[in-house]
């Protein structure tokens, strides 16, 4: 079972995660990132990299995030790979504050 990006990433998209992923399995739309479950090798490197704690290991996460498994799989399949770090969204700083990180 792979890793997933959850709602905290929305409007934030710091993409620190992309930089540490050894297999380039992050995909993105304008709002946030998604992990391709077929490519993710579960190394966990992205978890501590995310400044807003958006990423979880599906083997080790609160129940509430279960719906995100399907969302990541579906969105990743249709969106392009992000292979390099991007500038954070302009809303990122506010969003980070709002989330309390």
């Amino acid at each position: 079972m792979p890793h997933i990006v959850t709602d905290n990433c929305r409007l934030c998209r710091f993409t620190d995660c992309v930089e540490v992923c050894p297999v380039e399995c992050f995909h993105a739309d304008e709002e946030r990132t998604y992990i391709d479950p077929d490519v993710c090798i579960d190394c966990g490197a992205c978890i501590p990299a995310c400044p807003v704690r958006a990423i979880y290991d599906t083997e080790d996460m609160p129940e509430e995030f279960v719906p995100w498994i399907a969302i990541n799989a579906e969105r990743a399949a249709t969106l392009p790979v992000l292979s390099a770090r991007q500038p954070a969204l302009p809303t990122a700083a506010d969003r980070q504050k709002e989330l309390g990180f």
Partner: peptide, 19 residues
């Protein structure tokens, strides 16, 4: 236990085995 982010190969990540 985490990977050393400065190491040119480890780059901060380990692997699933060591999680």
């Amino acid at each position: 236990v985490t990977g050393d982010p400065d190491h040119p190969m480890t780059r901060g990540g380990l692997c699933v085995k060591l999680k």
